[in-house]
Simulated assay, not measured.
Amino acid sequence: MSKTPESLNNAQNNTKSSLGPAKPITTLPDLFLTAVSLLFLFSSPKPNHTLFRKFLPFPPNARRFPKMTTTSQSRASFATPQALSDWLKPRLSSDSLESWGVKPGTKNLHNLWLELSEGETSLVDSSPPLRTVNVVTVRILGKGNLVLVESRQELSDGSFRDRFRPLSEKMKPHETTEEAVTRAVKEELGSSRVVRIVPGSYRKKLEERNSVSYPGLPARYVLHSVEAWVEGLPEEDFVTEEKEEYEDVDGTRRLEKAVSVRKHYWKWVCSDSLCS
């Protein structure tokens, strides 16, 4: 029995349905277009990220600001006392500067220049400048609960200034407290005496006040305090003479115009209310 054309078409359609949907055949033009598209994609320039950076709320690497430092002046900044004077004039009132060495008990510009040259003092660049000094103070113990204080000083210009404080001395650069104590006792109490520092008596304190030596110039004192026993001291009030504070190797004064301490007046006083 022969099949009709209609039955043959139905049979072919059933066969295609059982095999699933027909897959498209890739032709040569399609392959060419795909290759061109890929080539264009990989050869295109990279996007400009700088266009997006300006929209960021903060930069990706935040800037670190350097720490503020305090400018100080030293010997290298002032070759002469006149250079120091020129630096001070716009930063200090003229009345204050003119009183140095004129008002009784004060020191003069040459003294400050020598302190800077010796490294005993530093100046902070401000208006007015701030003078910073490291000072060793020695509370010398005596018999019967007494302590030794310097009641006053006689200066080279003939003036006096009241002190009423323990032995005190400006410290040299890189000097330890023990070294400063030994030097202070030798310079102000005379000769080389045996000094015994009381263990555990060291104290450090910071004080800021107007300078008596240089009116109008505020000062910051870093006080290094100890208690000590010093052998061979008189039991009554006494006076000592100090050699020139600033001298050259040959023994001559480094600067004649500087005011120096000539004599120290010492007095034993009660250390507390237990002393009768």
Rank of each mutant, 00 (worst) to 15 (best):
A35P: 00
V124W: 02
R220F: 02
R63T: 13
N48A: 10
S126D: 05
M68D: 10
F32S: 11
Q12W: 05
L51I: 11
Y214C: 00
V269W: 06
N48D: 15
L123S: 03
M171I: 06
A62Y: 08
L92F: 01
C275M: 11
V195S: 11
C275K: 13
V269C: 08
T26G: 08
E175I: 07
K267L: 14
K23C: 09
K257E: 15
R253C: 05
N48S: 12
W229R: 08
S77L: 03
Y221F: 14
V194K: 15
R196G: 03
T106E: 02
T177L: 15
R165G: 08
P128D: 03
M68A: 14
E150L: 09
H264M: 09
K67S: 10
N134D: 15
V249A: 15
K186V: 05
N10Q: 12
V36W: 00
V181Q: 12
T132N: 10
F40K: 09
G105I: 04
L92K: 00
E169T: 13
S44N: 09
P29Y: 06
K243A: 10
R220L: 04
L217R: 02
F160K: 08
H224A: 02
N14K: 12
V269F: 05
K46W: 01
H49N: 03
D30K: 07
N48G: 03
C270A: 14
E175Q: 15
N13T: 08
T71R: 14
